[in-house]
Computed example of a mutant assay.
Amino acid sequence: MTVTAFQDLPLADRDRSWDGDAADKRVRKWAGVSDTPNEKYRDAHVWYDGDKKGNFTAYKLLIADVIDGTLTAVPRGIMAAAAVMDGSRGGVDLPKSDIDRVKSHLAKYYQKMDDKPPWDRD
């Protein structure tokens, strides 16, 4: 199991809408994948199962989309991933040992947005 390395992707406008399914299709096309994921595809996610990295279902917490040909972190995607990490939609099934690292990864994007992740708010 593994948390992806922080990519420090550029941020989209905060009010940009988020459609994870549509973003995934664009990321797949941008990454040049059809049958199996690759490292470019991985960079759009916060977590993946390293034992199953050849399966698209191994990738979780998509936070990026392709905007004008560039992989870009989308604030509403980051917020959706953070909400799931905070228990929304039933949470996410990740190893307990990875949860703090996933939250740290997401918190770095919150810092770029001059905001705090939900788990750090009063």
Score class of each variant (00 low, 15 high):
residue 52 K to T: 12
residue 55 N to V: 10
residue 55 N to Y: 14
residue 56 F to E: 04
residue 57 T to V: 12
residue 57 T to M: 10
residue 57 T to Y: 04
residue 57 T to D: 08
residue 57 T to W: 09
residue 59 Y to T: 02
residue 59 Y to Q: 06
residue 59 Y to M: 02
residue 59 Y to G: 05
residue 61 L to S: 07
residue 62 L to V: 00
residue 62 L to N: 09
residue 63 I to E: 05
residue 64 A to V: 09
residue 64 A to N: 03
residue 64 A to D: 05
residue 65 D to Y: 02
residue 65 D to C: 09
residue 65 D to W: 03
residue 66 V to S: 01
residue 66 V to Y: 13
residue 66 V to Q: 07
residue 66 V to G: 03
residue 67 I to A: 01
residue 67 I to G: 08
residue 68 D to R: 04
residue 69 G to F: 06
residue 69 G to S: 06
residue 69 G to A: 11
residue 69 G to Y: 01
residue 69 G to I: 04
residue 69 G to K: 03
residue 69 G to T: 02
residue 70 T to L: 03
residue 71 L to F: 13
residue 72 T to R: 08
residue 73 A to F: 00
residue 74 V to C: 02
residue 74 V to L: 02
residue 75 P to M: 02
residue 77 G to T: 01
residue 80 A to I: 08
residue 80 A to R: 15
residue 81 A to E: 09
residue 81 A to Q: 08
residue 82 A to V: 12
residue 82 A to K: 06
residue 82 A to C: 11
residue 85 M to A: 11
residue 85 M to N: 03
residue 85 M to H: 04
residue 85 M to V: 11
residue 86 D to M: 08
residue 86 D to N: 15
residue 86 D to L: 09
residue 87 G to L: 00
residue 87 G to C: 07
residue 87 G to S: 04
residue 87 G to Y: 02
residue 88 S to N: 12
residue 89 R to D: 00
residue 89 R to K: 15
residue 89 R to T: 06
residue 90 G to N: 07
residue 90 G to S: 10
residue 91 G to L: 01
residue 91 G to S: 05
residue 92 V to W: 03
residue 93 D to M: 12
residue 94 L to Y: 09
residue 94 L to S: 04
residue 95 P to I: 12
residue 96 K to C: 01
residue 96 K to G: 03
residue 96 K to A: 14
residue 97 S to H: 04
residue 98 D to Y: 08
residue 99 I to M: 13
residue 100 D to F: 04
residue 101 R to T: 14
residue 102 V to D: 05
residue 103 K to Q: 15
residue 103 K to A: 12
residue 104 S to F: 05
residue 104 S to L: 14
residue 104 S to V: 10
residue 104 S to A: 15
residue 105 H to C: 11
residue 106 L to N: 05
residue 106 L to A: 10
residue 108 K to V: 11
residue 108 K to A: 14
residue 108 K to W: 03
residue 109 Y to P: 09
residue 109 Y to M: 13
residue 109 Y to V: 13
residue 110 Y to N: 12
residue 110 Y to T: 13
residue 111 Q to M: 09
residue 111 Q to V: 08
residue 111 Q to K: 12
residue 112 K to F: 07
residue 113 M to S: 06
residue 113 M to D: 02
residue 115 D to H: 05
